[in-house]
Write a protein that binds this DNA or RNA. Structure first.
Length: 414
DNA sequence: AAAGGACTCAACCGCTTTTAG
DNA sequence: CCTAAAAGCGGTTGAGTCCTT
């Protein structure tokens, strides 16, 4: 491991973090937020570069991190998301609350790749190894090793939407050749979102379904960051054009029992990534300080129309009397929205909102589900099940509670 | 018990993208 | 619009641990 150039200049520490350093960083960020990372080490009294501090915070100190081994459920999700997104670790991590991109990347490289290979699946293309080997032979003769999945998907998306171009899939030339499933979520979103409106094939799915379903999913999604930016559209087998079924059926059959339900095999997924769901207002911070949770309407785009969806818990600082404090850390600095916004992702803050609306939504969900043509068998966990159950949320809450305890032990009560 | 290979995970590097001035 | 700084990301590495022989 080398040293950052800035570390050379300033003779900064590198390598593993000591508990003292952790405490300094944690204390500093909990008090002031990180603000500009490059100034954090100086302000916190650390002999580290800002980049190192940021990484330490993101990968280790963040209180909303889930620790411990990945569940089978999480592993399946990672595989599914990897099939759709490729090595977009941060994007995959965004859908696994409490997990970091680094953690997921390590798991993939050390474990999941191997598991897939053992099951005869190529971890790069998510196709049967025999098929990949054959295609490699053919490609070798033509001097090309282009990924069939992404190519096929891109072609299909191009058919559906003339605006869709494979050139949009590669974030950088460096990655484009290395990362086989180059179908980025953005491209998928582009293709699906516009097609939802433009393509008559897509219109075969009832507008009622789209409106109701998306609304329900989005309401759920706000409580589960994995789905916070997903919209679902129903294309799939009814049209014989399931974007992901080609490779995911292989993956899922290998990883999960035959009855397993995947999001992909029957329903294509339109990603709709709206960067930030909500930025807390100064007002919201003050209202949260009374110990209540405010809910602000935010919105998510479905197609080109803004779909209003509520349930964004707006949680700020704990109250000064310490009565109903649910926020482990205080937002001291007005305008440090970034800091506060990060904490809005914390499942803990979503819990109250979720509980309030869970019953209502599950009723609505039950009304909608039969129309969706999703497999009726939910005996095995899948992404779909996450929309119904909140086990992972509960886990996150447990983890969160432990983190709070940890922080409380560190700093005592305010 | 010791050696060494395999594995895991935290952290760094270098690059791209985003943001601010 | 341009540029520099900051942030973010994916790939890689090295140290520690575990497992096998």
């Amino acid at each position: 491991m080398g040293r950052h150039s800035c570390c050379y200049k300033q003779k900064l520490r590198k390598g593993l973090w000591s508990p003292e350093e952790d405490e300094k960083l944690l204390r500093h960020i909990s008090q002031y937020g990180h603000g500009c990372w490059s100034s954090v080490p100086k302000q916190a009294g650390l002999q580290r570069c800002g980049k190192s501090c940021r990484l330490r915070w993101i990968n280790y100190l963040r209180p909303d991190l889930k620790r411990g081994a990945f569940s089978q459920d999480e592993e399946d999700l990672i595989i599914e998301f990897h099939a759709a997104l490729g090595n977009k670790w941060s994007q995959i991590a965004a859908h696994l609350p409490g997990r970091t991109d680094n953690e997921i990347k390590n798991l993939w490289n050390s474990c999941l790749k191997k598991k897939l290979r053992q099951r005869g699946i190529d971890p790069v293309s998510h196709r049967p190894l025999s098929e990949v080997e054959n295609s490699d032979d053919k490609d070798a003769t033509s001097g090309q090793t282009q990924d069939k999945v992404s190519r096929g998907s891109v072609e299909l998306l191009s058919q559906l939407n003339p605006h869709f171009s494979s050139s949009k899939t590669a974030r950088s030339s460096k990655n484009s050749n290395l990362m086989a499933p180059t179908l980025s979520k953005d491209t998928v979103a582009d293709g699906f979102v516009s097609n939802h409106q433009e393509n008559s094939m897509m219109n075969s799915c009832s507008s009622d379904f789209v409106d109701n379903f998306s609304l329900q999913q989005l309401n759920y999604s706000s409580s589960d960051s994995r789905f916070s930016d997903l919209c679902f559209t129903q294309t799939g087998r009814a049209h014989g054009n399931t974007i992901f079924s080609d490779f995911n059926s292989n993956v899922i059959s290998a990883i999960s029992p035959p009855s397993s339900n995947s999001l992909f095999p029957t329903a294509s997924m339109g990603f709709n990534f709206k960067p930030s769901n909500a930025v807390p207002s100064a007002n919201s911070t003050s209202s949260a300080s009374t110990g209540t949770a405010d809910f602000h309407n935010s919105g998510s785009y479905f197609g080109n129309s803004l779909v209003s969806w509520g349930l964004l818990a707006d949680c700020g600082s704990p109250d000064k009397e310490g009565s109903t404090s649910i926020h482990p850390l205080e937002v001291h600095q007005p305008g440090d929205f970034k800091w506060a916004a990060e904490y809005l992702q914390n499942p803990l803050f979503m819990a109250a909102a979720l509980q309030n609306q869970a019953q209502e939504q599950s009723n609505l969900y039950n009304q909608i589900k039969p129309e969706t043509q999703f497999p009726p068998d939910h005996s095995t966990p899948s992404m779909w099940d996450h929309l119904q159950g909140h086990e992972s949320l509960d886990n996150s809450l447990n983890t969160c509670g432990k983190d709070i305890q940890r922080l409380t032990a560190l700093f005592g009560h305010n």
